[in-house]
């Protein structure tokens, strides 16, 4: 660019101009208003973020008893035992079963469990027979199958119960623990993704029986679990499932074949037969 051209352009800034109408006061007044608006916006943004975080935390930590979506009566007739004197867990989330038998449960993350079981035991034939006899006598309008050891490595015995709703099952296992019944029961109080403590009965021989809330059993089934802690160091586990004992090819029936009350009776029968 030539010097003349530059000079000509430079001269554009030096032309006569009308008097400015903008005063310092005007700029200061508008500038302060702009600062206030920006500060208000910042405060609002902080409030919104804090509010969202608070809502998120509240949603995550909503207690189980406040979750409205849990399907009632999945456990059938309930046992009247009190719940173990343990604080309920927080962080409940809904678990939903879809399909022909929709249901919703409130579940908690699985608790870290210490190695309470110290061994695997077999269940005495007399015990298995006694439990079956009890089921035959107390579960009406149902066909009670026979015990089958579905997993010989851990002696998981299972029998099917067939009624108008379809095929369900009951599992029975025996293992061992090394502490006292109360301590072991406390340690294993939240193993079923339960937020509420299990219902518990302390028997005259100091055995502890506890029944857990209904829990998910895989993606689509539900289960109801009871544990019996014997004073001799044996722990018997009874699991009622909404499907047949052999999982492959079996359909979920939607309901449990035993009620909570019947499961509690089964635990007491186990305590009685030794």
């Amino acid at each position: 660019m030539s010097a003349d051209e530059q000079q000509a352009l430079r001269a554009l800034i030096e032309v006569p101009a009308p008097a400015p109408t903008t005063t310092l006061e005007v700029v200061l007044r508008r500038g302060r208003a702009r600062v206030r608006v920006r500060q208000a916006g910042s405060v609002l943004a902080v409030v919104v973020v804090v509010g969202l975080l608070g809502a998120l935390v509240a949603w995550i930590q909503v207690p189980a008893h406040r979750l409205p979506a849990a399907t009632p009566h999945l456990a059938g007739e309930e046992v009247g035992w009190p719940r173990a004197a343990l604080p309920a867990k927080t962080g409940a989330t809904p678990w939903q079963r879809v399909g022909p038998h929709p249901a919703t449960l409130s579940v908690c993350p699985s608790s870290q469990v210490g190695a309470v079981p110290t061994g695997i035991g077999d269940t005495a034939e007399a015990t298995l027979q006694s439990v079956r006899d009890l089921l035959v006598a107390t579960v009406r309008d149902a066909r009670i199958g026979y015990w089958t050891d579905l997993d010989p490595a851990v002696h998981r015995y299972s029998l099917d119960i067939t009624d108008a709703d379809g095929v369900g099952s009951v599992d029975l296992m025996t293992s061992a623990y090394s502490t006292d019944p109360g301590t072991a029961a406390d340690t294993l109080a939240f193993t079923e993704r339960n937020c509420l403590p299990p219902k518990r009965a302390v028997l005259t021989d100091s055995s502890v029986a506890q029944v857990y809330p209904v829990a998910p059993d895989g993606d689509q089934s539900i289960r109801l679990t009871a544990r019996l802690f014997r004073p001799d160091g044996r722990m018997l586990v009874v699991v009622v499932r909404s499907r047949a004992g052999v999982p492959f090819g079996s359909w979920d029936r939607g309901t449990l074949p035993l009620s909570e009350q019947q499961l509690a009776q089964t635990a007491l029968r186990l305590a009685a037969v030794g």
Partner: peptide, 12 residues
């Protein structure tokens, strides 16, 4: 110019 000085003041 006025708007520009207002913005500069707000970040002064």
């Amino acid at each position: 110019a006025q708007e520009s000085f207002v913005k500069v003041y707000a970040r002064w």
